[in-house]
Design a protein around this nucleic acid. Structure first.
Lengths: 258, 258
DNA sequence: TCCATGAATGGAACGGTACTCCATGTTGGA
DNA sequence: TCCAACATGGAGTACCGTTCCATTCATGGA
């Protein structure tokens, strides 16, 4: 069975466009569709991304869209990947900081992207479960893996250690609360939401939910971003405790690049 | 605005059924609908859960269904909650083990549930992002919180510490790979999948993905469940390092219950 | 005993979705 | 100049969640 694209849809990520320059102003490209999809998602939320909305914005028909993108899931994956790539590139590769700083930078980049694009959290979660080793995961994994290596983790533990970090990262970013699918979530909204939730928690059954009741107060005035970083530090502490920094390993190269 | 149920749909979780015994054999109840939904999801996958499929299995009409459940999302949330509740109850509350063992038990309970119900991973992820403090999250949080407390973590850090664990937990369980939406994912399938992925990784661009290429081999023969536990241990190590077990704190009660 | 009431039901109909199919337009190379 | 392949726009299909409503049925009051 050939599971390669039997349809002329472009291979994901590759641009087969040899050199046919522009055959016309305003050609419909895969890139332009993805770009429009992101705009639509940002402006009007997840439910607004429909084929009809795209045809309208791009002044074309559904056939033209499908000639470029295969199906809706693929478009969503591409949009997610594009936004994640931008977020990760915001903090370049190795910016002279310590590995810890580097990991924190990646984490905050993702966190801020989720905040800036309310639809991203749900999409990250979906991509991650539906296609655990798709381009999005791979990108994040690679970006997290390098500082993990630089941290001095022994080679045999690279995969497991990086996985743990990525799992925490995605778990934490995908829970980051957006007041609504469209709307930048004002501080007031957030405070009101936390207040309501906290109060509701304090009225839970003490037998069923003693712990939740006990932390209701802490939850009311916690800061998502701060807590996110604390979690990262906790995981990093676990890593450096299990794998103390090698002062100078005899057989192994130093933790620098390569 | 009254956002209470203006429709006669039952309050979530509550059973208002006073004592009208059975008015007929085979009444249609919210519970029976949820149960059927889980069966449908288990047997035929996520896409098979449609109102029409439900009406067919339950030999009824869509109106009857909607009289009980409000809408499709609510049904999915209820189904998820039901399965998670069962999974968490499998390993009872405090079974005399150490807090670490208790946390591991909860984690494995979730892990196994995701394996047994291929649709669960995606639903957990969705519930978690769409409704971060819904019943599902609350349940897991409570169940994780108690051993965290027993671990000797200072009260001020309960919320943050439990959050970190839950975030890792959900990140890890939601990535757990299912070969397909329906099918228990045989060991052979899994091996083949890992093999394919590992090979694909080794052919990535060395400039773009050096780390991924370096761990491709480890990924080929890793064990999801084992790695999952290793991650838990890593986080637990972070917790106990940051909060060393209190031999005997003066002002604070001992870490036992309450 | 009978009936009026309202909870509960089954199904037709509505508006929307992703996606397919195809007749047509456009373009670069021979 | 012509043609084959690329590219397009829109009509049509099948299915979805949800609403609406006429009908059934158990039950409490007369």
């Amino acid at each position: 069975m050939l599971d390669h694209c039997s349809k002329p849809a472009r291979m994901t990520g590759m641009a087969p466009r040899t050199r046919q320059s522009e055959r016309r102003r305003q050609v419909l490209t895969r890139e332009r569709i993805i770009e429009t999809a992101v705009e639509l998602l940002d402006a009007e939320g997840e439910d607004a991304l429909t084929v009809r909305a795209l045809t309208s914005r791009l002044a074309t028909g559904s056939g033209a869209i499908y000639w470029h993108i295969g199906n809706m899931s693929e478009l969503l994956e591409a949009a997610t990947d594009a936004v994640v790539a931008t977020a990760l590139d915001a903090h370049p590769a190795e910016t002279a900081g310590t590995p810890r700083d580097d990991i924190r930078a990646v984490a905050l980049g993702l966190f801020d992207a989720v905040t800036a694009h309310p639809w991203l959290a749900a999409q990250l979660a979906t991509q991650f479960t539906r296609n655990p080793w798709g381009p999005v995961t791979l990108r994040i994994f690679e970006r997290i893996g390098r500082p993990v290596r630089a941290l001095g983790v022994p080679r045999a533990d690279w995969f497991t250690t990086a996985s743990t970090l990525v799992h925490y990262l995605l778990g934490a970013t995908t829970q980051t609360r957006q007041s609504d699918d469209t709307a930048p979530a004002s501080a007031a909204d957030r405070a009101a939401f936390l207040d309501t939730a906290s109060s509701a928690w304090q009225e839970l059954d003490p037998d069923d939910y003693p712990f939740i009741r006990a932390i209701a107060e802490q939850m009311r005035d916690h800061d998502d971003r701060e807590q996110f970083l604390t979690g990262i530090d906790l995981v990093l502490t676990g890593i450096t405790t299990l794998h103390p920094a090698p002062a100078a390993e005899p057989g192994e190269r130093l933790p620098g690049p390569e």
